[in-house]
Structures are given as structure tokens and as C-alpha cells.
């Protein structure tokens, strides 16, 4: 099915003319081995791309609890609405399928690749190869796919078999064949009309009676307390100033990924002890640090949380929300 490639011919012609190093148009520069090595992070099911290094389930446990559990739960069950990573075996053909690493993913290599490239969610590509070997081993362990003595390296990792591997098949659509009929195409006596569930759609922009807004992301109002604040204080109950009230939406959108969980050294919102000294610096310093970013003793606070679309006022409001919720 693949079209035949005429590149070998082109290459041969170029070789004859003594220009074998340049392409037909001669545009661009050679990508050096060093450049490629820095960016070539992908891993494949046959093990291609797995780097040197080693890890263990035991080391993975501590790392996972420090860097992943605030969102994904201590046992991979998912805090609040953050993704579930474990469980769900035997549910795929039921009315409540639960797709997790263990129940659904066909290849273990995907787990290594994904954790390295994209997790922890707020600080991707911050883990060392050894840390990924350990954490990935621990996630497999949480899913009963490897034992607690599993040694995780490029040889053993490529050997791991996932239970659901055989249950994937190549796209076989079109799988339905409708007819272009014009008269009496359906039997209306068999029609069942299902209407929508009222109240789940944000319709404030076109219906007067609906209060739900859909033009900005205001997160899940309960996500803050659900997702990993082990705290001290239920921040949803604090009476907020006007600025802080406005700032809550900004916080949900741009700050909670780090500040709910305390990932990467971010002070947790609601953790009174962790905020006392920070608040002591005064609001100007806090606002400046939040707007312009800074490198502190605990980690890097990116300018505006990395979301440059925010106005300075948005950030100031978010800081007000964080401070008022952490006193």
C-alpha cells in the first residue's frame, strides 16, 4: 500500500554529482548527534530508546509518594478528579469500564516514555532516568504487574508484558453501512426520544435563566479541597475579600497544579505553617515573585505560573486568594 520511494534514486544522483551531504534543495543544517541526543527522548515497545540506569520498586515508592501521590493517590486511585493509575482489571467489557495503566495500557514502554516526557504534570522532564525507572516500576507494582523485587532497567523493562496487549486491533472502519433511503426509512412507532439532562450545560450566554458561565475556566469548585490538600484548614470556608474571590478562578486555572499539591517545592495553599514566613515578607514581595517569577530555596516559581496570558491584576488576585486561604 505504501507508495514506492524515489529517495534512493535521488541519493544516487547526488552521490554522482559529489553532493551526497546536501538534500535536493540544500536547505537546513546537519542535526548533530549531540543535538539529537538532547531531544530524542522517545521509547518504543521493543525497548528502543530506553536509557542506561536502574531503579527499584522500593525506591519508586518514596519517589511516587513525594512527586505523584498528591494527584494520583497513594495507591494510584486518583485524588479528587485527577487521573486514576491503577485498578480496573476485568472491567473493560462491563458497563463501567475503568481504563488504567494496568487494566488498559498495551505496553509498559509507554509508561516509561510518558512519565519521562510529561510527568509530574506541573514540572515535566524534571525526573532523572533512574527516578523514572523506579517510579515506573512502582506504578507497575501498584497494578500487580511486577513483584516488589522487580529490578527496573532497559533489559527488564522491555520484557514486561501487559495483560491487555492482545486486545487491541487495527481500525476496521467503516464499520456501519447506512443506506441513503428517502421514504419511510424508519418506524416512528419504535422511536424513543431522549431529551437532555437539565442543568449540566453552561447556557448563560444564550439563556437568561441560567447562571452558569462558559466563557472562562473556573475549574471545579470543589477541586481545591478534593485534590490533595491534607490540610489544616478547609479553604472553601474562609470568607474571602473581593480580590481574592476574583483570584480564585485564576488560581484554579493557573496555579493549583503546583500549589494544591506542593509539587516541586511550591508552598501548599492552606498550609498555614508553610505560609507564615512568606506572608511576613509583605504582599508587594509576594506579588512581585508571583508576577515576575523567582528562584527560591525550595524551587522555581515561574513568572505568572507560566501563564503569560494572565494580567498582573489576575496574578495579584490569585495571590490574595492564596494568602487569605493560608492564614
Amino acid at each position: 500500500m505504501f507508495k514506492s520511494l524515489k529517495f534512493p534514486v535521488v541519493a544516487a544522483v547526488l552521490a554522482l554529482s559529489g553532493l551526497a551531504t546536501a538534500g535536493p534543495l540544500g536547505i537546513g543544517s546537519t542535526a548533530t548527534a549531540e543535538m539529537i541526543a538532547g531531544w530524542d527522548i522517545d521509547v518504543r515497545p521493543d525497548g528502543m530508546g530506553l536509557p542506561d540506569g536502574e531503579g527499584s520498586v522500593a525506591e519508586g515508592e518514596g519517589l511516587y509518594e513525594a512527586k505523584c501521590a498528591s494527584c494520583h493517590g497513594l495507591f494510584g486511585e486518583g485524588e479528587g478528579r485527577w487521573p486514576v493509575l491503577a485498578g480496573g482489571e476485568g472491567t473493560l467489557d462491563t458497563l463501567h469500564p475503568e481504563k488504567t495503566v494496568g487494566s488498559y495500557w498495551p505496553y509498559a514502554s509507554t509508561l516509561w516514555d510518558y512519565i519521562y516526557r510529561a510527568m509530574p504534570y506541573p514540572v515535566p522532564q524534571s525526573l532523572s532516568h533512574e527516578e523514572v525507572y523506579s517510579i515506573a516500576a512502582y506504578v507497575l507494582y501498584l497494578n500487580d504487574i511486577v513483584g516488589d523485587d522487580f529490578v527496573s532497567n532497559k533489559d527488564t523493562f522491555a520484557e514486561v508484558k501487559m495483560p491487555n496487549e492482545e486486545n487491541f486491533f487495527i481500525d476496521n472502519r467503516p464499520d456501519v453501512n447506512n443506506e441513503r433511503c428517502f421514504k419511510n426509512c424508519a418506524d416512528p412507532s419504535k422511536f424513543e426520544i431522549v431529551t437532555t439532562i437539565n442543568g449540566v450545560t453552561p447556557t448563560g450566554h444564550f439563556k437568561e435563566d441560567s447562571g452558569v458561565a462558559a466563557n472562562h475556566y473556573d475549574g471545579n469548585p470543589s477541586a481545591v479541597s478534593e485534590s490533595g490538600i491534607s490540610t489544616e484548614k478547609n479553604i472553601t470556608k474562609v470568607a474571602l475579600s473581593e480580590g481574592a474571590t476574583l483570584g480564585r478562578g485564576v488560581y484554579d486555572m493557573a496555579c493549583q497544579a503546583c500549589h494544591n499539591s506542593g509539587i516541586a517545592g511550591a508552598p501548599k495553599v492552606g498550609d498555614v505553617a508553610g505560609w507564615v514566613d512568606r506572608i511576613g515578607q509583605g504582599m508587594d514581595t509576594l506579588n512581585d515573585h508571583a508576577i515576575n517569577g523567582y528562584q527560591g530555596a525550595d524551587g522555581v516559581m515561574p513568572a505568572k505560573g507560566g501563564n503569560m496570558a494572565l494580567s498582573d491584576d489576575d496574578v495579584v488576585n490569585a495571590v490574595a486568594f492564596m494568602v487569605e486561604s493560608s492564614r
Binding site: 530524542d40 522517545d42 521509547v43 518504543r44 515497545p45 521493543d46 528502543m48 473493560l92 467489557d93 469500564p97 481504563k99 495503566v101 488498559y104 495500557w105 498495551p106 505496553y107 514502554s109 509507554t110 516514555d113 510518558y114 510529561a118 486486545n167 487491541f168 486491533f169 487495527i170 481500525d171 476496521n172 472502519r173
Partner: peptide, 30 residues
């Protein structure tokens, strides 16, 4: 990156595959 086989990354295994009622899943439903 040009290779000789697909990578089966997260967005073509965990996501963007289509679960059928028998518990099997379609992949590469482009």
C-alpha cells in the same frame, strides 16, 4: 523521527483508542 515501527505512545494507547463492547479496542483510528 523516522522509524520502522510505531511508538505506541500514551496518546495512541491510553487515549485515542476506541473501546468496544467486548472489551477489545480499536487502535490507529485516524
Amino acid at each position: 523521527e523516522i522509524g520502522d515501527q510505531p511508538w505506541h505512545h500514551r496518546e495512541e494507547t491510553s487515549k485515542y483508542t476506541d473501546l468496544m463492547p467486548d472489551g477489545r479496542s480499536r487502535r490507529f483510528t485516524w
